[in-house]
Amino acid sequence: MIRLLAFLAICLTFALPVAAGPVRIKDLVDFDGVRGNDLVGYGLVVGLDGSGDGLRNAPFTEDIMTNILERLGVNVTGEQFRPKNVAAVLVTATLPPFARAGGQVDVTVSAIGDAKSLMGGTLIMTPMNAADGQIYAVAQGTIIAGGAKAEGEAGGVTQGVPTSGTIPSGARVEREIEFKLSALEELRLALREADFTTAGRIEQAINRDFGRRVAVMLDSGTVQLDVPATRMASVAHALGRIENIRVEPERKARVVVDQRSGTIVMGEDVRISRVAVSQGNLTLRIQETPLVSQPNPFSEGETVVVPRTNAEIREEPGIGLAEVPNGTSLSEVIAGLNALGVSPRDMIDILKSIKAAGALHAEFVVR
């Protein structure tokens, strides 16, 4: 398994991105106002197989269970009702843009008490609120948990996260968010990755497609659209035409490394100034070989353990001092290091040192 991971890491090292090519505007920007809204609710899951909340440790579970039963006409006041098949949960979802009443959305259910698993449970009708405190959806249904847990007297095993699950199409939209797209005179296109060059190309592409000035770049992350100038039947018609216009985005020179897996991913625009590189490995080895000393037979004395330590420092030969010419691309440097047998983790250390020396002209991202 370790050899396979190392092989994949080296393969990913050579996976250099090529030119992006034309990309649809819809994949580069978000339209101002066209977004989802987060919903959250507090509910109760029932039907668990003895893996629910311990009500002594989670009194809020008992409170919500009592409230639900009383709303259904069951009086449990003063009763010692402590089942193990219920759990208090938080329910989250995202209301998509232009969602209409009666539509359905997926929900995520997560335990907030000491329940061990939500597998097989059913979420009871749970109102879901937005940031304004209004109820926009109601969730209910059977939970699909993403894990499993088994335990005995002496131990147990857990796979995945059984205390969290999903309900596909588990919430029904009850209230619509008021947003009149057709009344907009101006609309902003927000770039997901701000860049002046990309914003300028989007402006030029839109104006070229309509044959007149309908878009203007405000800054590196915003392009403003003059809706009446598009002469389209509606704002929706204009956006439907604009989002499929293709633009070639400009990317920043960036190097991303993952120290845990030894993965290195880089952009084709990365460049290195003239610099000299040398790398070697220092190995420190300490070995304990204690010696046991025993007294002679029938003599007075005691057995003594004498410590004995062998310490060794060994420096393995490195790649030597090598000069990297000015304007060399990072892909050429990596290819040279691979030819010398340098491991991906050693490459990361070398790249860090080159960046610290100011010779690596790219954004360096370490994960």
Rank of each mutant, 00 (worst) to 15 (best):
K352F: 00
R231L: 11
G170W: 03
P168T: 15
G43F: 08
L48P: 03
G318Y: 00
G141N: 08
A362T: 01
G36V: 09
L225F: 08
N67W: 00
P83E: 10
T303G: 04
I242D: 02
G54K: 13
L123Q: 04
G280V: 03
G146N: 14
D114S: 10
M1A: 14
A205D: 01
V216Q: 13
N207K: 07
S51T: 15
P168K: 15
N129A: 13
S293N: 11
R246K: 12
E193G: 04
C11M: 14
A145G: 10
I135Y: 01
G121D: 08
P297S: 14
A335V: 07
D114Y: 02
T303F: 04
N67T: 09
R82K: 14
A205C: 02
F60C: 08
T126L: 07
K116P: 00
D132E: 10
F210C: 07
A233T: 13
G358R: 08
I112W: 01
R201I: 00
L191T: 03
T142H: 06
C11W: 08
P344N: 14
I242Q: 01
V223E: 06
L90G: 02
S343A: 13
I124G: 00
A137W: 01
N244T: 12
A199S: 10
D63W: 01
V23D: 05
V306A: 08
E174I: 06
D226Q: 11
T163F: 02
K84R: 15
G103N: 13
I2W: 03
V109H: 04
A311M: 09
